[in-house]
Amino acid sequence: MNKDLGNITNADVWVALKEVTDPEIPVLSLVDMKIVRDVKIDGNEVHVTMTPTFAGCPAIYQMKSDIEEKLRELGFEKINIDLSFKEPWSTDMLDDEARLKLETFGITPPTKHNGNPTSAINAEVKCPYCKSNDTTMENPFGPTLCRMIYYCNSCRQPFERFKAL
């Protein structure tokens, strides 16, 4: 599908990227996750800046190739994707809509911390299933770098909490 690139705007690219989902959290897009930082179209070239959630997140390469594929579908042939640590990614950047999607997916959204993630470590953690606060941390690490494992003493189910960062 070769479109006339001259008609594609920045907004079109953002809309398209909103369809690229996080490989580890398929209910959120890379735009919802605030992983895509900037889009610039320069003639028939497109530049995308993205930032990793965790510095060592191995999913970043999958995300990069998913973005490339989507931009190729739009008709771009020259695609530049830069990784940047400027304004490091923080879970405080996730908006209410994204948080609700996470909770519905079964992951307790990250506690807001206003720039001090340590303050979130001992915060109350609500079970995403039964909404009880009677929960216990089982492990500050989980199936991916961004999640921790909890146990709900009320509905007796293990669940995951998104790590505040």
Binding site: F54, A55, P58, E138, F141, G142, I149
Partner: peptide, 23 residues
Amino acid sequence: IEEDIAFSNIAQDEIGHAQALLR
């Protein structure tokens, strides 16, 4: 198993940090 998960995560973080420093 909890520690297996924890140390695998820590390993991934440290190797990721090495990679970022090397960039």
